[in-house]
């Protein structure tokens, strides 16, 4: 009943799809991380003129479907003549660039909220100690606030990366040939849904397991101080 020849024959296409999925994920995560750190600092700031615009940005992005955002960028921008005539148009027409832009903005919003939450959760004592030691505020940000917040954010950030990996399946709707698009093409060619989507499901399952495991290792490294310790008595 299950046609292994179809699965075997489509494996090279699936491998290319995995490469596209991971590349889109890596590019979006990188852009999202770089944008989210300063935005999170603004979002956690006590200055309303800084925090409110960032709040609005994350609220709008997190309150609308990614599919709508992607279509606004990919199909929507062509509506404006000045965009079509601008120098950036050759780039804005490409599905790759649009998908990257939409996914990067989307993950920036979620990552900003995660980092801002972690910043706000900084124990007040940490900052007091740093001040009493005479650290400048730049040094406090660089050596106390940001490293501490990024560590605290690690478990949630790992979740966000896995969710973004799953969200890249949506790029299949704008003709990017990632894993889900390959599965849809295999399905249309052979009309065998279990083989086509089942293979994609196994690929996503394995990728998820790898990412979850990778973040567990990172947590073990960077959140070592939070692990329950064996008591000295037990060790002796």
């Amino acid at each position: 009943m299950f046609d292994w020849d179809v699965v075997g024959g489509s494996l090279p296409a699936f491998l290319d799809g995995i490469r596209v999925t991971l590349l889109l994920l890596a590019m979006s995560c990188a852009a999202g991380f770089v944008l989210a750190v300063p935005l999170a600092v603004a979002r956690a700031s006590a200055n309303r003129w800084l925090s409110t615009p960032v709040w609005l940005f994350t609220y709008v992005i997190r309150g609308t479907p990614l599919l709508v955002q992607l279509f606004m960028v990919y199909y929507g921008l062509a509506q404006f003549e000045w965009i079509r005539e601008s120098a950036a148009w050759p780039m804005l027409r490409s599905a790759w660039f649009c998908a990257w832009l939409a996914f990067a903005l989307n993950t920036t919003a979620y990552t900003t909220e995660i980092f801002a939450g972690a910043l706000k959760a900084t124990p007040a004592g940490d900052v007091e100690v740093a001040r009493s030691l005479g650290m400048s505020s730049v040094a406090i940000w660089r050596r106390i606030l940001l490293p501490g917040a990024l560590r605290r954010a690690l478990p949630q950030y790992g979740n966000e990366v896995v969710m973004l990996m799953h969200a890249t399946a949506i790029a299949s709707t704008v003709s990017l040939v990632e894993v889900t698009r390959v599965a849809r093409d295999v399905y249309y060619n052979h009309l065998m849904p279990a083989e086509a989507f089942g293979t994609a499901a196994i690929i996503y399952f394995v990728l998820t397991a790898i990412f979850v495991g990778g973040f567990k290792l990172l947590e073990r490294r960077y959140l070592r101080h939070l692990r329950p310790m064996a008591t000295t008595a037990a060790r002796a």
Binding site: H166, A169, I170, P193, F205, T208
Partner: peptide, 21 residues
């Protein structure tokens, strides 16, 4: 565990087309 490891879209396509078969 299984559900949280898969994209919504892939599950939806699997159930919609696979369910029909």
């Amino acid at each position: 565990t299984l559900i949280r490891s898969l994209p919504d879209l892939v599950l939806m396509l699997l159930i919609f087309y696979g369910g029909q078969i």
